[in-house]
Simulated assay, not measured.
Amino acid sequence: MEFYDAGRTAALLPYEALADAIAATLVDAARGLATAPERIHHPLAGGGTLLVMPAADERVAVNKLVSVCPGNPGRGLPLLLGSMTVLDAATGRCLGVLDGPTVTARRTAALSLLAARTLAPRPEGALLVVGAGVQARAHLEAMREGLGTRRVFVFSRTPAHAEALAAHARGLGMEAAAVADPGPALERCDLVVTATGSRTPVLHGPLRRDAFVAAVGAFKADMAEVAPEVVRACRVVVDTVAGCAAEGGDLLLAGLDPARDCTPLAEALGAPRPLEGPVLFKSVGHALFDLAAGRLALGHAAGR
């Protein structure tokens, strides 16, 4: 059994290839060739959450086990910790163990990249990132790699964190600036990512008519990063209907029913790109996307 640390896991999961792998996995799931139950949320002491996410296709099975502990940054620990085991589906033989937080960050950003490629009226436009943590960084990198994004604005409630992420963007060759208020930046940005752990809205709009928003930070029914009036002004696409019906607080607190009011990304993949927006893509995560990462990273080791 081989263990892959964060760096080696990242090297196995380039964003563009992972976005393609997610699209292929969604197609397989629609054909019944890839399956996954809804993930298990189990409460931990101190307000943390244990997430359990199994999935399988005919060649590969995965199980990701990660914890989300809000008190960890104050302890000098990452917010997310965990691992993902990748197995040969026929024999149960372990093909390797990947770093769980790295899988989560990269497959979430790759999913947003896939959604932007599919749904953004102007995918070549400037980017606003709200948040400056691991997911914000991954999304910035994914948009740079997959869309060629050249200009980015970063907002965080901690200005030093926003400046650090802007400096990272400049190191990638981007024109980047930390901003004290996301509002004015919205007037100049066609692409928006919200990647915070906030339970109350951090994005209040108004959005441009050609805006695409990927809202990825809120993963519980009582969490919302995007103000309800902004959500209601958008065409809404979701990663999965069932997941967002249970955990998509941005939508639920805005009064939307994901089954009635939203389009699954799997359906949108085959439709023409919208000519205008705004479009909101809400993602809460699903084990199928972890399966895509496992297939890309170690699927060749199944040997069939």
Rank of each mutant, 00 (worst) to 15 (best):
L12N: 05
A24W: 03
D28L: 15
R31D: 11
R31M: 05
L33N: 12
E38V: 14
I40K: 05
P43K: 13
V52A: 10
D57L: 10
V60R: 04
K64M: 14
V66N: 01
V66C: 04
V68E: 04
V68R: 00
N72E: 07
G74L: 07
R75V: 09
R75C: 02
L79K: 00
L80D: 00
S83A: 15
V86L: 12
A89F: 09
C94V: 15
L95D: 08
G96D: 15
L98M: 14
P101G: 10
R106G: 01
L111N: 10
L113Y: 05
R117C: 10
R117D: 04
T118H: 02
P121R: 00
E124A: 13
A126T: 10
A126P: 10
L127E: 05
L128C: 11
G131M: 13
L140M: 09
R144S: 12
T149Q: 06
V154N: 04
S156I: 11
R157L: 01
T158Q: 14
A160M: 13
A162S: 13
E163R: 15
E163V: 05
L165M: 09
A166H: 01
A167G: 15
A169W: 01
V179R: 06
G183Q: 12
A185I: 05
L186D: 08
E187P: 02
E187M: 11
L191R: 00
A195S: 15
A195G: 07
T196L: 14
T196D: 02
G197D: 05
L207P: 12
L207F: 03
L207Q: 14
R208W: 03
R208F: 05
R209E: 13
D210A: 10
A211I: 07
F212N: 04
V216M: 12
F219R: 01
K220E: 13
D222M: 12
M223W: 13
P228R: 07
V231S: 13
A233H: 11
A242W: 07
A242F: 04
A242Y: 02
G243Y: 05
C244F: 01
A246Q: 06
E247T: 02
D250T: 04
D250I: 03
L252P: 01
L252G: 08
R260D: 11
R260G: 14
D261F: 01
C262W: 06
C262G: 01
E267P: 00
A268W: 14
G270I: 04
P272D: 11
R273E: 07
S283W: 13
G285V: 06
L291N: 01
A292N: 01
R295W: 09
R295C: 13
L296W: 03
L298D: 02
G299N: 00
A302D: 05
A302V: 14
